[in-house]
Simulated assay, not measured.
Amino acid sequence: MSHSYPARRSVLLGSIAAATLAAAGRPVRAQGGYPTRPITLVIPFAAGGSTDVVGRLVAQKMSDELGQQVIVENVVGAGGNVGAARIAKADPDGYSILMGTVATHALNPLMLKRKPYDPIADFAPVSLLAVIPNVLVVNPKLPVKDVKELIALLKAEPGKYNYASSGLGTPLHLSGELFKSMAGVSMQHIPYRGSGPALNDVVAGQVPIQFDNLPSASEFIKSGGLRGLAVTTKERASSFPDIPTIAEAGLPGYETYTWNALFAPPKTPPAVIERLNAAARKAMADPNLIERMKAFSATVVSSTPEALGEHVKAEMAKWAPVVKEAGVTTE
């Protein structure tokens, strides 16, 4: 398998930054006074997770900019597919929008046997919002101090060790599968119903290894309940500057992360998309919001609609071979 993903992402994020700077100077015209009533932001996951936190912060700031309340509605089910499918079929008037993720717009469409929507054709991109690191953690009793030692242990005793994730087919599960593929190691995946139960079992020593979102694992790392070996992003996380990246710690070229982005229904008028994009960009530039995001290791990455569309295509291309090699399919 070819692993040119980081180079592709570097070019992509460079184009996002350039396009965003160019777009920042454009005058934005509302269509027919839009918006004239509240907007519903569907978050396709339960309250309390990183997507929900990002969504609520953005909704509050966008409400201030748009002059209408952006109301958050958590529509859970099928790994994010229920909420995403609702927006794919919603009226294209700008009053129903989606907080999409790598799960709704890359992984689920690649894994599902029956696809409720097309992640490209059935949505109008608005803006990329944030990138959130994942982290590789181990129980402190596992006799490894870094990624190189973990790889050596897994190669010395293939198939002996298990790793946990928040569920089958999640970005964290596939982070583990990409790690296995690139490192040439064998370990069994143990899926849980969410990060909480998985973390508890890894802390208790029931499972020795886990891939998790950095925000949810951070308190265990700080307390010593877990040993943070490496973050999965290209750059180190500002909240844990002493934890290296997997790429620099022994697996060059490795990179995964969770991202959040705004999408509207297909055929939403360009003027409405532009208005939403401008509000999202202004929200993400707010110093207070940036500080809040940093507190749970999220990095602000706003974009033009066009750049978000290219980002989705790149993510689909990145994850397709990983999903195929892992043999993951869901109903």
Rank of each mutant, 00 (worst) to 15 (best):
M1F: 12
M1W: 07
M1N: 10
V11K: 07
L12K: 02
T20W: 01
G32M: 10
Y34P: 00
L41E: 10
S50D: 14
V53F: 04
G55V: 02
Q60S: 12
K61S: 08
E65P: 02
G67K: 12
E73P: 01
V76C: 14
G77N: 13
V82F: 03
D91K: 14
V102N: 15
H105K: 03
A106C: 13
N108T: 04
L110V: 05
P125Y: 09
L129H: 09
A130C: 10
V135R: 02
V135K: 01
V137T: 13
K141L: 13
K145C: 04
E149W: 02
A156M: 06
S165P: 06
G167M: 01
G167S: 01
L168C: 02
G176C: 06
L178I: 01
M187C: 09
H189P: 05
I190D: 09
R193W: 00
P197N: 04
L199C: 00
N200H: 07
P208S: 06
D212P: 03
P215G: 01
P215H: 00
S216V: 13
F220W: 12
K222Y: 04
S223F: 02
R227S: 11
G228L: 00
L229R: 01
K234Y: 03
P252S: 08
G253K: 06
T256H: 09
W259I: 08
L262V: 06
K267W: 02
I273K: 12
R275H: 03
A278G: 12
A278Q: 12
R281D: 06
D286H: 13
N288L: 12
A295Y: 00
V300R: 09
T304I: 05
P305E: 14
A317D: 15
A326T: 05
E331L: 14
